[in-house]
Amino acid sequence: MTTPITLPLPATVNCSILFPGVPLLERPARAAAAGFDAVEFWWPFDRSVPDDREVEEFVTAVSDAGVVLSGLNFSGGDMPAGERGILSDPARSSEFADNVDVAVGIGARLGTVGFNALYGKRLPGVTAEAQDELAARNLALAGRAAAGIGAVALLEPISGVEGYPLLTAADAVAVLDRVGSPDVRLLLDVFHLGVNGDDPAVAIERFADRIGHVQVADAPGRGEPGTGDLPVAALLDQVAAAGYRGRIGLEYAPVTQDPFGWIASKESST
């Protein structure tokens, strides 16, 4: 590990990847016990429209922990089977709209300010143009819904998924330009960009005014900062200096005994 980093902005803990082995609904309390006041999740249900009981259990777990749900993914489809979003799938457009209603309803209760929409992989039998047009419409819908509670929809490039068309910050920003709405912004994840060969520092310099959320993990490996090669401290200082004032999402798979030992002080993270 390198010298601990003083975070220039408040943090939020991604409870879908941190605290492995802990039941999902117990993770917000673990984050609070570790000194954090906000969490974020990938879509925490096994279907796009869960039943009311599941929703209430999730809301209760977050609210009882005394933390804010700062970020929430829209449904990514069957993630264990390799799906990465339903945004651009013509067969699932109504499912996405229904999911937006559920997600924003949860967010309205728990203080969510960003909703991440995974784009979806290229589909056989559907042209890229048709997928892109649908994705733009669905992103606009998601942005309008998010804006209704003072939040934004987010779009991110990701790595390691064959057929996923958004690999660089420029790829995602081109989609944002197609949507043409300030309610849809870039999720800049330094890990995914680094793995894909897109220099995060250059992306921050070029697209600082488009960033709606920032997430960190080191690369390669997706461990906590200090376990790889990315200059995470410099990148965080750069994005703060460029005017970003949101939270820093801690979205990594811990590989050390203390997953938060890289942070110089808990006071700087809350």
Rank of each mutant, 00 (worst) to 15 (best):
A11M: 05
A264C: 04
Q257A: 15
R27E: 11
V202I: 15
E26T: 11
A130H: 12
G82Y: 09
D171I: 12
V104D: 00
Y119M: 12
L123P: 01
E56C: 05
L230G: 02
L193D: 03
P44W: 02
C15T: 09
G107V: 00
L87I: 15
G180N: 08
P225E: 00
N196F: 10
F96T: 02
P165M: 06
G261H: 02
D199K: 11
I149Q: 15
Y244H: 13
V104R: 03
S159V: 09
T112R: 06
D98N: 08
Y164N: 02
E26W: 11
L118T: 04
A140K: 14
N73I: 06
P90G: 10
A140D: 15
E251R: 00
L167I: 05
D177S: 10
L25P: 03
A117V: 01
D101S: 13
L139N: 10
G243T: 03
I149Y: 09
R53W: 09
Q238G: 01
A65C: 04
S16C: 13
L235M: 07
L141V: 05
T270A: 14
G226S: 13
N73C: 15
P10Y: 04
E57A: 12
P124F: 10
L187K: 01
V126T: 14
P8Y: 08
R178H: 12
V175M: 12
G77N: 02
P23G: 11
V22R: 12
R53I: 11
H213V: 02
G249A: 08
V102F: 06
V22H: 10
